[in-house]
């Protein structure tokens, strides 16, 4: 693949440049569980083009920061004075400990070295801070092998089962407040338009996703 899928220009053709299923609707659903005062600092892991950051700043009055490993994506992000972008790995956040009210990770968690990223999430969250996640997950573990055969570098091929994700979240000391299945949002998401960009045979993509019963979830956890 010439460029990683997340850096492919195809994303900029999607509505509102939102690079995940469910778009800002699921962002709002997830944030409805978090009690955050206006002005609270929120960090978006893998912020991409910054659609969530701009939304959280404009509609929630939050101080929104985003990190992304991709220089090209950050370079194409629409900037305004109220949101901040930093190029960094989520496994090594350039932020002070206990400095953030909420961390959000939308369709990115399974792309990270998860234990390292979760350790950093716990480190930067204030006590009582929120960890808000939406991502793909596997509802039929018998189909995981088919997913793993897809090219690396997308959340699809790295999706895990709910039990495994919850165990990793709990192991890092976060309490899960809610887990909601939002798989209905997958149908509206143009995965197969992305298959060309990812150089994946769309038939193989649909077959693998079907065998694994690929789903989408929103989870909200809290630091004690």
């Amino acid at each position: 693949m010439a460029v990683p899928l997340y850096e492919h220009p195809v994303w900029e053709s999607l509505p509102d440049q939102v690079m995940r299923p469910g778009g800002l609707i699921l962002t709002e659903r997830a944030f409805s569980f978090a009690e955050l005062a206006s002005g609270s600092r929120v960090l978006d892991l893998g912020c991409g083009l910054g659609a969530t950051l701009r939304h959280l700043s404009a509609d929630y009055g939050l101080a929104a920061f985003g990190v992304d490993v991709s220089s090209p994506l950050l370079g194409r992000a629409d900037r305004d004075d109220k949101v901040a972008f930093v190029q960094a790995r989520s496994e090594q956040l350039p932020l002070a400990s206990e400095s953030i009210g909420a961390v959000i990770s939308e369709c990115t968690l399974s792309l990270f070295e998860m234990e390292s990223a979760l350790r950093e999430v716990v480190r930067v969250l204030k006590p009582g801070g929120w960890f808000i996640v939406s991502d793909l997950y596997v509802r039929n573990v018998d189909g995981i092998a088919a997913l793993r055969q897809l090219p690396a570098g997308t959340s699809i091929g790295a999706a895990m089962a709910q039990e495994e994700i919850e165990a990793k979240i709990a192991a890092c000391g976060l309490d899960i407040v809610t887990w909601q299945d939002c798989s209905e949002h997958l149908k509206a998401f143009p995965f197969c338009r992305l298959s060309t960009a990812a150089e994946v045979n769309p038939f193989d993509l649909v077959i693998a996703a079907g065998k694994a019963k690929l789903g989408y979830y929103v989870m909200v956890a809290r630091k004690s």
């Binding site: 038939f203 193989d204 649909v206 077959i207 693998a208 996703a209 079907g210 065998k211 019963k213």
Partner: peptide, 12 residues
């Protein structure tokens, strides 16, 4: 071939 596989995967 692939189309039947897609049907089977989506229809379980």
């Amino acid at each position: 071939g692939k189309m039947v596989e897609v049907e089977k995967a989506l229809e379980d």
